[in-house]
Design a protein around this nucleic acid. Structure first.
Length: 274
DNA sequence: CCAATTGTTATTTA
DNA sequence: ATAAATAACAATTG
């Protein structure tokens, strides 16, 4: 489920626990979600630690605790973060829970493609610092996009948009949304895009990121009640999985097909192969 | 039983 | 050697 904005949505949920101490850490040790860390160290260090603050980068979340403790969470395909009452009883897929006095911070992930990372040390760990500069940062320039597309010239543009080293945070639905707005066919080879198309693509990458963050994760301090609660019908988002769905702009039928290994939806009336 | 799933990584192919 | 395609991971749902 989670791409850039959903990740920020879930981080904001857990921010309810900022400034509060962790009384206990409960984990389904041995589960795949802990493949990237030492669960025993995590449990020992976080018990009694205070959650200071948190941030997101791409699809990764970072939670900082006092005592030089860094917690990373990736939601994979099916992960989500919830806040439950102190009385809540963990269920099968609640693999990681931070218990605080007034709430429990729950990481639930049925498919376990997500993961928990932990680092103890003065400086931020590599798994956090090595994340590519955000699409909404000044480093995401037209030139950088053009150079990247040149290097991936023989791959379909849809597949290239999913590459986290240049488009951090973009996932399957955002990639489709970006290409639909940019009126670029997902099967176009990255190297075939004209400079004007690269400019449009760059602009729509930024626009979709901004819009998604504002509507899904909420502007400023505001957090919407549910994921997707405020996504307008004018986005491709609501129509891409409908059988017999129609393009919100052209009103013509949408098409679904596998491109770059992922199911892809586009509007043939708007996105031409050429 | 078969196919599908908003992600990533290891392996294979070109 | 590099890049693209494919398989694999796990659980659930239609």
């Amino acid at each position: 489920m989670p791409e850039l904005a959903e990740v920020e949505f879930f981080r904001k949920r857990w921010s309810a626990g900022h400034a509060a101490k962790v009384l206990a850490a409960r984990l389904h040790e041995g589960k795949k979600v802990f493949r990237g860390c030492d669960p025993a160290a995590l449990k020992r260090r976080l018990t009694g630690a205070r959650l200071l603050d948190s941030e997101t980068a791409a699809k990764q979340m970072l939670f900082r605790f006092n005592g030089d403790n860094w917690l990373g969470i990736h939601l994979g395909m099916s992960g989500e973060l919830r806040v439950e009452s102190p009385a809540y009883a963990a269920t099968k897929h609640d693999h990681f829970i931070l218990v605080q006095q007034k709430r429990q911070l729950v990481f639930n992930d049925p498919r376990m493609f997500g993961g928990v990372l932990f680092h103890h040390g003065k400086t931020a760990p590599a798994w956090w610092t090595k994340i590519a500069p955000a699409i909404l940062s000044p480093a995401f320039t037209v030139e950088a996009v053009a150079a990247f597309l040149k290097r991936r010239a023989r791959a379909p543009i849809k597949a290239v948009l999913l590459m986290q080293e240049r488009f951090p945070g973009v996932g399957n639905w955002m990639a489709d949304e970006i290409l639909w707005r940019a009126a670029i066919h997902p099967k176009r080879l990255a190297g075939s895009l004209k400079l004007t198309e690269v400019r449009t693509l760059h602009r729509e990458c930024r626009r979709v990121c901004r819009l998604a963050l504002d509507t899904i994760a909420g502007k400023g301090r505001y957090l919407p009640p549910n994921l997707n609660a405020h996504i307008p019908r004018s986005w491709l988002f609501w129509h891409r999985w409908e059988d017999g769905g129609h393009c919100p702009r052209t009103k013509k039928p949408l098409v679904r097909e596998e491109v770059g290994g992922r199911t892809t939806c586009w509007s043939p009336a708007r996105q031409k192969l050429r």
